[in-house]
Design a protein around this nucleic acid. Sequence first.
DNA 1: TGAGCTATCTTGCATTACAATATACTCAGC
DNA 2: GCTGAGTATATTGTAATGCAAGATAGCTCA
Lengths: 113, 113
Amino acid sequence: MIPSQMLKGTLEGCVLAIISKQETYGYEISQQLMAYGFGKITEGTIYPLLLRLEKNGCLRATYKASEVGPKRKYYALTPTGQAALKDFYHSYCELSNAVHGLMQDIKGGTSHE
Amino acid sequence: MIPSQMLKGTLEGCVLAIISKQETYGYEISQQLMAYGFGKITEGTIYPLLLRLEKNGCLRATYKASEVGPKRKYYALTPTGQAALKDFYHSYCELSNAVHGLMQDIKGGTSHE
DNA sequence: TGAGCTATCTTGCATTACAATATACTCAGC
DNA sequence: GCTGAGTATATTGTAATGCAAGATAGCTCA
């Protein structure tokens, strides 16, 4: 299981990524995150996050009726959101490289001693 | 630059990893993190983190004199700390795989056909 | 009527990176 | 001796964010 602290900062970018694939809504996003292996991301996490992203201009929302339940709030990326996704991916790679370098050093031989 | 929120949870495991390579102290750890590409991790981050890890039994500390400044507090991993490092690595891989899977999907093929 | 699934939102809490600040030791230059 | 720079540790308070818990509401089916 992924500890909640480790999701901080990463989750936001991943939600942007999911929306960039296709317009979608909170409930489905939480199910997709689970399918990708992030574990159960609860509503108390997902909805505040979406509202935050809408408020700062990364997302644009439209309500649409559903045949199987209450109205859904569909989100789409704005240009700001696309830029944020790009930034996220860049930062994530930076972190990933740093961690990877460190883990290589403790596994194999020590490289610089 | 890696945003601070994205470091949460990850930094702790990385500090354990650095100490597992060799007993070391706070000031040097912050320099090593910088060398690995994590950016500047300030004292206000590193010392509380080390005290937390010492308090919950992951680290054991011993003071040693230095020839060039005040006493250094050297940290070493306890068995608990080694287990925590293993856990961290496992969780990190889980997150990494999830993010990677997602990023592949938005780049190449669409999954919604 | 009520159970169960779908769907959104809010409140309050815990964790943690970080800025700012305080303390203290060693050494070089004056 | 005094002062400032570099080394080294610690504390306080703040901001960000994942999440539990709970409220609200609509749909379907028995």
